[in-house]
Design a protein around this nucleic acid. Structure first.
Lengths: 365, 365
DNA sequence: GTGAAAGCGCTAACAA
DNA sequence: TTGTTAGCGCTTTCAC
């Protein structure tokens, strides 16, 4: 063996001058145990700050860690620990295109994470029955999963239920629509006021300088994200484009049928409408009525979320811009955060910031 | 022990009815070895399609894999294999803000990946000396890293050097600027023709209907990404906004000083310029000259890449829009792809598609 | 061609 | 309070 090593180092000088540097293997628990003069178990205790170690010993171990620049091999740790992440995701049972995309993104993420022994359990609640949501949250509290990603309206009862879940040790991350009053650590989604401002700026720019009438269609003003978007829209409109006339919000409950009917009526009563801001879902209805009335091209429309419908409307020139959030990014980010939290690890801030994206026909991927 | 198990299952019925379902553990190599009636070693050989197994045996093992729905635990595999990923990243030594951001993103990614035993070695080459780049690529070929992420101009010599690297077993992914002629599997970056089209569409919309003169500033038309952006810009301008007059490209080599001087001259000779499309770097120069000449607000400018400079120009109203690519996303994606390739794994397509982002003051994060 | 057994870096009973 | 030891799921000599 000695001989072999000598051969290697001989060859080394001739052939692999670069390899030498790579030999500096990462120190392991053994190295730090040796250096600190303690056993593996003790090192492990310190590493996971478990009780039952004298302060002095802790210090020795930590010095060794520092000195050798030890970093724990999380993969090995999880293997030994037989760790598996048990996450649940709560969503409205609404079957809008947007939520279908969220679903798809979750499935995709779940598939990619089986490798990392992560299970994601999706649960739905009817948007119109908060009691069922509360019951569901109660069940989840009992199940004690490692993490919960939730998209739900913020009512006092929801807030309390979520707080109880958090108190029971489950990490919670609201997605898409924030639940600030729960005191959650992270929210994964866009700033909806900013999204509304963005829509207004584009609308104003696209409409030009002469005054116009603008129609705003939303799901429901009870939904916080929609309300925030409207607020941001009005704010920017007022400041930068006061010449335009913005009509009161039309509530269509995110259903294509409603959107179609309500917008149709509005267009009839108010043919001078030159711009439409569609805050919520149900864009298929908007597209049909615009085509049926022959106004698809001359009205400037800005909508939310990238879906098959909005994509083709953009390409066809019916929609002028779409404000979107990357759902794939949102769900991956949410689970990355939940996992980091359960492992008590840091997250890369910049990686978890969800951007308010703008799409026009030209930058559709 | 038997007794203990009985106790547990007793408790189970009373307390943890939900847990039962979770018991369906993932099958391991042991399970498939047992099912196929062979040893671990043989299973492993089949799993990694190593030679020395009878066809019949291979079939038995594969049947078992199929039947039990086995999926390999990559973490455990890498642990046993003592695998570490050795990646190198080649970049121009250009000190533009954009490249600094790329650098930062790489450092951040590298920090996040030490956990996954990944080392990233960044190497630079002077943009004006292709020979040095070729030499560098030669060195890298000799080092045989697992993967190479490269941002470089596509010359025949570069192409050949890269092809040799690929032939030697190193996976290669061009980033930001593609190297299609190398036959790479993936390119991580945006479609620059599309980016140019996007810029044109916004420029046209923002300028309004009356005809205007537009100045285009780029780094160098030798740089493919810049050339592609210009091509896309011209195309859309021609089709949708033929009323505007687009001037020939001003080459400023991505240096603020040059940009300032050249744009200053252009503005003097051609005061009717109403729009500027800045394709490359050196935007600080553009911002200063616009302020010095007092034209910061009245000229519509569209630039590329989100940097401190472009951010503040957007906020201050000097820039009207910025087309960007998310560098953090690009580098993470590149290394994710390289890692997947070295492990012979699939990648999530949607996660690796880099979007052409549009920023205005309102949607800056 | 195939199998037995010794790890990879870490954790967790169980002893001491 | 600390140490011993047997795994986690997979790979890899080295025998047979």
């Amino acid at each position: 063996m000695k001989f072999f090593i000598e051969i290697l180092s001989y060859v080394h000088h001739i052939e692999f001058p670069a390899k030498q540097e790579e030999q500096q293997m990462r120190p392991t628990v053994y190295d730090i145990a040796k250096d600190a003069g303690v056993s593996l178990a003790t090192v492990d205790r310190v590493l996971n700050n478990r009780p039952g170690v004298r302060d002095k010993t802790i210090q020795q171990v930590q010095d060794a860690i520092e000195k050798l620049g030890y970093v724990r091999d999380v993969a090995a740790a999880n293997l030994a620990r037989q760790r598996s992440y048990d996450f649940v995701c709560v969503l409205p049972d609404n079957r809008s295109e947007f939520l279908r995309e969220v679903r798809a993104a979750i499935d995709e993420a779940a598939a990619g994470m089986t490798f990392e022994r992560t299970r994601i359990n999706v649960r739905e609640f009817p948007l119109d029955d908060t009691n069922q949501l509360i019951d569901l949250l109660g069940e989840i509290e009992a199940e004690q999963p490692d993490g919960l990603a939730i998209m739900a309206p913020e009512t006092p009862a929801v807030r309390d239920a979520v707080k109880r879940i958090m108190a029971s040790g489950t990490h919670v991350t609201p997605i898409v629509s924030d639940l600030p009053s729960t005191g959650r650590n992270h929210f994964v989604g866009i700033n909806n006021v900013g999204a509304g401002r963005t829509a207004a700026q584009l609308m104003g720019r696209f409409l030009g300088s002469k005054s116009a009438t603008i129609l705003v269609v939303a799901g429901s003003m009870v939904s916080t994200d929609h309300a925030e978007r409207r607020a941001g829209f009005d704010e920017t409109m007022q400041i930068h484009f006061p010449q335009h006339d913005v009509l009161p919000t039309l509530e269509a409950f995110d259903k294509a049928e409603n959107v179609k009917v309500r917008v149709g009526e509005a267009l009839q009563h108010c043919p001078e409408i030159a711009g439409i801001y569609s805050i919520g879902a149900g864009n298929q209805g908007l597209v049909s009525i615009l085509h049926e009335t022959g106004r698809a091209r001359d009205i400037t429309v800005i909508a939310h979320e990238l879906t098959d419908c909005s994509r083709s409307a953009l390409k066809g020139g019916t929609f002028d811009a779409v404000i979107a959030q990357n759902v794939g990014h949102i769900v991956r980010s949410a689970f990355r955060i939940l996992k980091a939290q359960t492992d008590d690890l840091m997250t890369i801030e910049s990686q978890e910031r969800i951007r308010t994206e703008i799409f026009i026909a030209e930058n559709l991927t």
